[in-house]
C-alpha cells in the first residue's frame, strides 16, 4: 500500500513540474506591464524602470525562472504586490474556506445524486427516472452565479431565512480556534454550538448553489453505471440465488457500479474548484478563488502563480486519493499496483 502511494506520488512529479513551468510562462505573457501598473499612472519612465529592477523583471526569462524555482523550493511563493503580504500566508488562510465549501457541496451533491441515480436505474423509465433527468439537467444548465443570486434574492431578501451573504461567519461571531481551518469542524471541536450554527447558516446557500450544479454528472453516471451492472451476469446469478432486492442492488450492483462514479467525483471536484471562483464572488466568500481573480485583474502575478500551483497540487492529491479508493473498492486494482 505504502509502495503504491509512493509510486503514485512519483508519477505526479512530472505533472507538477509541468504546471510550474506553464504557470510561470503564462503569467509572463499576460497583457499589461506589471512594473508600470505598480509605479502608478503618474510615475516617470525612470520610476517605472526602478520598480522593474526591484521586481527583478529586467532580467531574462530563464534567470527569472531560476529565481522563481529557487524561491519555490524554500516555500516562498513571493508576495502579493497589491496587499504586500506573502502569497503563502494568504493562500493558507483562504484555502480552508474554499475547500470547506467545495467539500460540503460535493458531499451534499453525493448524498442527493447517488440515491437518485440508483433509484433512476432500478426504476428505469419510471417517473423517478424522468424527474431525475429533468432536475439534474436543469441544475447543470443554470450558471452558478445565476442560481447563487437567485437563492440570495429568494432566501435572504424575500424570505429572510438565510443570513446576509457576507462571508463565512456573521460579524457578531468570532471564528472558532483554528485547528483544521474548517469552521464547521473547528467549532464542533471547540464545542461552540452557536458558532457552528452560524457557520452552517452561512455555508448553506453557497453549498446548495454549487451542489445543484454538480448533481447532474454524478446522478447520470451513477444511473448509467448501475444500469450496466444490473444487466450483468453476476447480478442475474445473485437474483437466481434468491438474494433479496436490497442485497442485490446495494451489495452486488452498487459496489461494482461505484468505480465510474469515483472517477467522475475526481472530475467534479476539480470543476467545482473552478466554479468556486464565481460563487465566492457572489457570497463574498473569503476563498482562494476570489483572491486569484482580484490578483489577476491587477496583473499581480505572484498570487496567480501560487493559486494555479496550489490547485494543481490539490488536483494531483485528489486523483491520488481516487486511485487509492479504487484499490479499496476493486481488488483487481491491487494486483497491478
Amino acid at each position: 500500500m505504502l509502495t503504491m502511494i509512493a509510486r503514485r506520488m512519483m508519477l505526479a512529479i512530472p505533472s507538477i513540474v509541468g504546471v510550474i513551468v506553464v504557470t510561470f510562462l503564462l503569467t509572463r505573457v499576460l497583457p499589461g506591464d506589471t512594473a508600470a501598473y505598480f509605479a502608478g499612472p503618474a510615475a516617470s519612465a525612470q520610476a517605472v524602470e526602478e520598480v522593474r529592477v526591484k521586481l527583478g523583471l529586467d532580467q531574462s526569462i530563464p534567470v527569472q525562472f531560476a529565481s522563481y524555482v529557487g524561491d519555490l523550493l524554500r516555500g516562498d511563493l513571493g508576495a502579493s504586490l497589491t496587499t504586500g503580504r506573502p502569497v503563502v500566508t494568504e493562500l493558507a488562510a483562504r484555502l480552508p474556506a474554499s475547500t470547506e465549501l467545495t467539500l460540503a457541496a460535493l458531499l451534499l451533491s453525493l448524498v442527493i445524486a447517488v440515491p437518485l441515480g440508483i433509484i433512476a436505474a432500478v426504476r428505469n423509465d419510471s417517473w423517478v427516472d424522468h424527474f431525475t433527468r429533468i432536475f439534474t439537467t436543469a441544475g447543470v444548465s443554470l450558471p452558478v452565479f445565476f442560481t447563487g443570486l437567485l437563492f440570495v434574492y429568494v432566501f435572504y431578501f424575500l424570505l429572510g431565512w438565510a443570513p446576509a451573504p457576507l462571508g463565512r461567519l456573521d460579524v457578531f461571531y468570532s471564528s472558532p480556534p483554528e485547528w483544521t481551518g474548517f469552521f464547521l469542524i473547528d467549532s464542533l471541536v471547540a464545542r461552540e454550538w452557536e458558532t457552528f450554527r452560524a457557520a452552517l447558516a452561512q455555508l448553506a446557500l453557497p453549498t446548495i448553489t454549487l451542489a445543484v450544479f454538480s448533481l447532474a454528472p454524478i446522478a447520470r453516471i451513477t444511473r448509467a453505471s448501475m444500469l450496466n451492472v444490473l444487466a450483468s451476469d453476476f447480478v442475474r446469478t445473485a437474483r437466481a440465488a434468491g438474494l433479496s432486492g436490497g442485497t442485490v442492488v446495494m451489495r452486488y450492483a452498487f459496489r461494482n457500479a461505484l468505480l465510474p462514479v469515483i472517477t467522475t467525483l475526481g472530475m467534479v471536484f476539480s470543476f467545482l474548484l473552478g466554479a468556486n471562483v464565481l460563487v465566492e464572488k457572489v457570497f463574498a466568500w473569503p476563498g482562494v478563488g476570489s483572491y486569484a481573480v482580484e490578483a489577476l485583474l491587477a496583473s499581480d502575478y505572484a498570487p496567480v502563480q501560487g493559486f494555479v500551483l496550489v490547485m494543481a497540487i490539490l488536483y494531483v492529491l485528489v486523483n491520488l486519493a481516487i486511485d487509492l479508493l479504487y484499490g479499496v473498492v476493486d481488488p483487481r486494482m491491487k494486483v497491478e499496483g
Binding site: F234, T237, N256, D330, R332
Partner: peptide, 14 residues
C-alpha cells in the same frame, strides 16, 4: 437454483 454460461462473469468480481 441455476448455473450459467461464462462462469467468471457469473460471479461478483469484487
Amino acid at each position: 437454483s441455476m448455473i450459467f454460461q461464462n462462469p467468471r462473469a457469473a460471479l461478483n468480481p469484487i
